[in-house]
């Protein structure tokens, strides 16, 4: 009996020590299986060919740097880099500027109204990208869409918004900015609210107008929030896939084909898994560099 209690106590102490490892193990097991293995394998695949149909052995064969050399001579890949770059830069700059403006205005109106409006602007952020894209697709449809019907009623010309190379990318960008605006504005607004009232009072005493107030007080203090918004935005945009695949499929003439979509085509349409992995590795590196640069230039000595 006494021994039993002792044993139980000893077990209790061991368990106390062991418990944290047990608690975190599912994460790290999952991490090993679903991330560490895939990412290492992805890097390996970037240097290999994989024919998934081969039944003898694994169907893998090592080809060295071939894919990476090929990548930088591949006009379609370079084009996808350009497309992704344009989308990322335009959406980040315009989207963030609009979101700051919206947040500032939302902050000024009575709380009740502000809450309703916030909920409204926030809707696209909680709506499936599939749903959003199909709504836009119907509105922009050349032959039976609302926009062209409206233009015609106003005596203007119809236009093939999604089908012509000159406008498809811009239609996509407008949709992206629209769907991300509410989310960004909401985060920025929470940043606005955390700026101490006294700073504004001080600025007023110094005779600052509302524009100077915004420029010299609001904006600098918003920097941590903006950093967050821009960084998460850039990472999302660099890997943009679903809205493009659903809205234009990358066309016309690959004018909207992003890197992630090209990767998907190579892998799942052409079964070029090795080449697609080389693209994936390159894309990952680009994302890391972009985040790093972003912290370097934007981050400064901001405290979190």
């Amino acid at each position: 009996m006494l021994l039993n209690v002792e044993a139980r106590e000893r077990w209790g102490r061991v368990w106390e020590k062991l418990a944290p490892y047990v608690f975190i193990s599912p994460f790290f097991l999952g991490f090993a299986a679903f991330q560490l293995f895939p990412i290492s394998f992805s890097v390996y695949l970037g240097f290999a060919e994989w024919n998934p149909y081969v039944r003898q052995g694994t169907g893998l064969s090592f080809v060295g740097l071939q894919h990476f050399v090929q990548l930088f001579a591949d006009a379609r890949f370079l084009n996808s880099l350009k497309v992704t770059g344009i989308i990322t830069v335009v959406c980040t700059l315009v989207g963030t500027a609009l979101a700051v403006g919206l947040a500032v205005l939302l902050d000024k109106v009575p709380e009740k109204l502000s809450m309703i409006l916030r909920a409204l602007f926030f809707m696209p952020s909680v709506t499936s990208v599939v749903v959003i894209t199909y709504i836009w697709k119907q509105i922009l449809s050349e032959k039976y869409g609302y926009l062209n019907a409206l233009l015609e009623n106003l005596g203007l010309e119809r236009h093939n918004w999604l089908g012509s190379p000159s406008t498809a990318l811009w239609a996509l960008i407008v949709m992206l900015i629209w769907s991300g605006l509410g989310w960004d504005a909401l985060i920025i607004m929470s940043g606005l609210r955390s700026i101490p009232e006294e700073l504004y009072d001080a600025a007023k005493i110094d005779g600052a107008g509302s524009w100077e107030e915004f420029w010299y007080v609001t904006l600098p203090l918003l920097r941590p929030v903006l950093l967050f918004v821009v960084t998460t935005g850039i990472i999302y945009l660099l890997g943009l896939f679903a809205p493009v695949q659903l809205l234009t499929g990358g066309g016309p003439l690959h004018r909207t084909e992003t890197v992630a979509l090209y990767l998907y085509h190579q892998a799942f349409d052409y079964q070029e898994f090795g080449y697609a992995s080389a693209i994936a590795v390159t894309l990952t590196l680009i994302m890391f560099v972009a985040s790093f640069l972003n912290y370097r230039f934007f981050g400064g000595e901001v405290e979190y």
């Binding site: 697709k137 449809s141 050349e142 234009t248 066309g251």
Partner: peptide
């Protein structure tokens, strides 16, 4: 007619377009 952006052409047939 572009399947990707215009959708199913049955619409055009039905509407007599």
């Amino acid at each position: 007619w572009d399947w990707d952006t215009d959708g199913d052409p049955m619409v055009a047939l039905k509407e007599g377009d």
